[in-house]
């Protein structure tokens, strides 16, 4: 570029081209109509325009308003607890009853066929031995299991 030439941007400035709107245009009255159009569209902002009303609406809460949610929650838990109690009472599963006071169970245990089919079949003789060893009554039942004890097992004396 020739150093003696003025900068092209300076030339443009001298020609009035360095202004915000140079070379651009808008319809007549655009800015006036824009301001009117925009202000008409502005939404309500009560927190800006009527803050006193909002403060009045958010006045200090009463004691009841403060504790109400907690009271409701406690009432709900109490209701659930009562329902569970009622359900337990009606279904009779609340407490284990002594066998003597359960006539159905007592009758079933007096029935040999029932014992054979539902009780003895589920008992493993080795479990019985284990229990007898633990509670020290093995000697008493030893003869009964003598045939089943392998020769290499040394029984406690």
């Amino acid at each position: 570029m020739d150093r003696n030439k003025p900068h092209i941007l300076e030339t443009a400035r001298k020609q009035g081209l360095a202004t915000p709107s140079a070379g651009l245009d808008v319809p007549d009255g655009y800015f006036d109509s824009f301001a009117a159009r925009l202000t008409a569209q502005l939404p309500e902002r009560p927190e800006l325009e009527h803050p006193d009303d909002i403060e009045a609406e958010s006045a200090p809460r009463t004691l009841w308003q403060t504790v109400r949610p907690y009271v409701y929650m406690a009432a709900m838990f109490a209701g659930v607890w009562l329902m569970l109690q009622l359900f337990t009472m009606l279904s009779g599963t609340g407490r284990l009853q002594p066998m003597d006071s359960n006539p159905v169970l007592a009758e079933a245990l007096d029935n040999d066929a029932f014992l054979e089919q539902f009780v003895y079949d589920d008992i493993d003789s080795w479990d019985v031995v284990d229990e007898m060893v633990e509670d020290g009554s093995l000697d008493a039942g030893l003869d009964f299991f003598a045939d089943e004890i392998p020769d290499d097992i040394v029984l406690p004396q």
Partner: peptide
Amino acid sequence: PATVRAAFGEMVAEYSRPLYWQIRRMVLNP
């Protein structure tokens, strides 16, 4: 609060022109 809306309208009238040219020079489309 008593004057905010009216003042905002005045602000729009005051600044819409320079802001418009600023934006227009960037995006070109009116």
